[in-house]
Design a protein around this nucleic acid. Structure first.
Length: 283
DNA sequence: AGTTCAACCTGAAAGC
DNA sequence: TGCTTTCAGGTTGAAC
């Protein structure tokens, strides 16, 4: 569920809540949450015990916490993952998968995940770790290369939204912000990437950055209690959404009812008037 | 090599 | 009131 703004809100919470602290205990309550750590739960615990958290980093939707051992604790929230920093006495959550305690006896770090699509692992450190080398820089990263993105996009043989969702091309964008950015840029989700002009691609990038930045300012988008920050607080960006989840409601720009179409086993929301279907769509 | 899609899960909401 | 179906913020590996 979480996309770049939501993950960045969590990163900031981890920066405040766990950086500088030393791990004193690790409890893995569900093996699926650590399946990316191939050596298993005990090995993961061994690599964490006694280690100090040095920093809180993010690329796209991936998080990692560099440790004083040179390794890093990597996390992905999947569709329903939460990283909570809560007092040790807090009752166990229904979907608590992993908990970490610290030597200062203060708040615990808890990984809670209803659907277990997310997970954590200890990986070799890096900026970013080699384990996420396939994830492209995200559009809020100073290292993001606009020219490289535009050229790579136009070399693709796919549809515009498929490309935005491909984390190897550009990272951090998911189903909500892809639809919102395409609406802001006035582009259809099935537009063939090879026909996108440079100016259109740059306009799309402006829209992507704007919507991600505004969502971050609002603390992210929370439709339900599944997305919350490290202190359990929901984001407020839902009310600012123009198209996502608004089937049949008026387009904020022209009043035309928003359409919802099946797309990649999920949904694509768009305005039929602001985002006309291209002559030769690539679905 | 590039592109697409089923599979991985739980639970809420809608449909009958 | 149930029972069934649909849908949900994502990624990956395998098939084409």
């Amino acid at each position: 569920m979480p996309e770049l703004p939501e993950v960045e809100v969590v990163r900031r919470g981890l920066q405040r809540g766990v950086v500088g602290r030393t791990v004193s205990a690790v409890e893995v309550r569900h093996p699926r949450a650590v399946r990316r750590h191939v050596a298993g739960a005990e090995d993961l615990a061994g690599l964490l015990l006694g280690r100090r958290v040095e920093d809180a980093c993010r690329r796209g939707k991936y998080l990692w916490l560099p440790l004083d051992s040179g390794d890093a604790l990597q996390a992905h929230l999947g569709m329903s993952g939460q990283l909570l920093v809560v007092p040790a006495a807090t009752p166990v959550e229904a979907h608590l998968r992993v908990r970490l305690a610290f030597t200062d006896g203060g708040a615990e770090l808890r990984f809670v995940d209803q659907r277990t699509f997310g997970g954590i692992a200890v990986v070799a450190g890096g900026a970013p770790p080699a384990s996420i080398a396939h994830i492209a820089p995200d559009p809020l990263d100073p290292a993001f290369d606009e020219d490289a993105f535009v050229h790579a996009l136009r070399r693709r043989r796919t549809g515009l939204k498929r490309a935005l969702l491909d984390q190897r091309l550009i990272s951090g964008i998911g189903n909500i912000y892809a639809d919102e950015a395409l609406w802001r840029a006035g582009l259809h989700y099935a537009r063939a990437t090879e026909t996108v002009r440079r100016g259109e691609a740059l306009r799309l990038l402006v829209a992507v950055r704007a919507v991600l930045g505004e969502a971050l300012q609002a603390g992210g988008t929370s439709f339900d209690a599944l997305y919350v920050d490290t202190e359990g607080v929901s984001g407020r960006f839902e009310r600012a959404l123009a198209v996502y989840g608004r089937r049949g409601q008026p387009c904020p720009r022209c009043g035309t009812p928003i359409r919802r179409e099946a797309f990649m086993n999920r949904s694509a929301y768009s305005c039929p008037r602001c985002q006309p279907r291209p002559r030769r769509p690539h679905l």
